[in-house]
Design a protein around this nucleic acid. Structure first.
Length: 271
DNA sequence: ACTTCGACCTGTTGGC
DNA sequence: TGCCAACAGGTCGAAG
């Protein structure tokens, strides 16, 4: 579920309820996620105040005075705010309870997500230190991406989904950005001109920004049980549209597999 | 240094 | 209707 726009929407959704609040309890029902939830988390996090709710790529960062909670939602994770005493449901793996009677609750059926704890500068954490620039930052520009692409034979779609190249471009938005840029997802990264990288960078930024906007407007009710409307469905032009007519040229959208992930594109509009 | 592939999980869907 | 294979929005680390 979560790509960067959903993670950012989650960040904005939970922030008002937990910023400057003190942790009074941590309840772990299932510690086996992508990585085990550290045993130290509860004892060290308890009594700490959340000083910032940040994001790096698809990681959420809950910063305290002594360390940072790293949360990744994997493929199926979601966060919600519930009142203290609300009964957990299936796959509700961890609660972080605050002194304002609110509880931050992670649900993750597939358990590809993670909840970690670091006392260092989170940027130095193993999982964050190798990450590429944020897609919406100035650091992510055509000069950078073009430089990175020299001598890279991988298909452009896989290239932009590589988190060491740029963070936050998942399967949906990689497909959408390449459609918007008119670039064939199978094209080798090294065989794309600087000019086309200028377009691609702009399209990646636009597609992500638009999705964040959509999420922000339709997801004000973060405390509700069903925190995931299909808001991004409406802006998708190729993802999941196999055999449907291209919005530009009416050719059927094609589907193929790249690295075990589905790719959707228009063979006429994208070269 | 770069690329590919298996692995981790459960829930849903589509074809027979 | 039921069954089962295929697939789902991520990404790490080992193997090639």
């Amino acid at each position: 579920m979560p790509e960067l726009p959903e993670v950012e929407t989650s960040r904005r959704g939970i922030e008002p309820y937990i910023l400057n609040q003190q942790v009074i309890d941590v309840v772990v029902r299932q510690k086996k996620l992508r990585w085990p939830i550290p045993a130290r988390l509860k004892s060290e996090l308890i009594k700490q105040k959340i000083l910032a709710v940040g994001r790096r790529g698809k990681y959420l960062l809950l910063e305290t005075g002594i360390g940072t909670v790293l949360i990744h939602l994997g493929m199926s994770g979601s966060l919600r705010i519930v009142d203290k005493g609300t009964a957990p449901e299936k796959h509700d793996h961890i609660d972080i309870a605050f002194n304002n009677n609110k509880v931050l609750r992670l649900r993750d059926p597939r358990r590809f997500g993670s909840v970690l704890w670091t006392r260092k500068d989170p940027a130095q954490h193993k999982l964050l230190s190798q990450l590429g620039p944020e897609p919406l930052s100035d650091e992510f520009n055509a000069d950078y991406l073009y430089q990175q692409s020299r001598s890279r034979k991988v298909a452009i779609k896989l290239f932009i989904m590589n988190s060491q190249v740029v963070v936050g471009v998942g399967n949906i938005y990689a497909n959408e950005a390449l459609f918007m840029a008119g670039i064939n997802p199978k094209r080798q990264a090294s065989r794309i001109s600087y000019q086309r990288y200028q377009i691609l960078v702009a399209c990646i930024k636009e597609v992500l920004q638009l999705a964040i906007q959509q999420g922000g407007t339709s997801l004000q009710d973060f405390t509700q049980q069903d925190g995931k409307p299909g808001y991004f469905q409406q802006i998708l032009k190729v993802y999941g549209k196999t055999n449907q007519p291209c919005l530009i040229c009416h050719q059927p959208i094609r589907q193929l597999r790249q690295q075990q992930r589905s790719t959707f594109y228009c063979s006429q509009c994208q070269s």
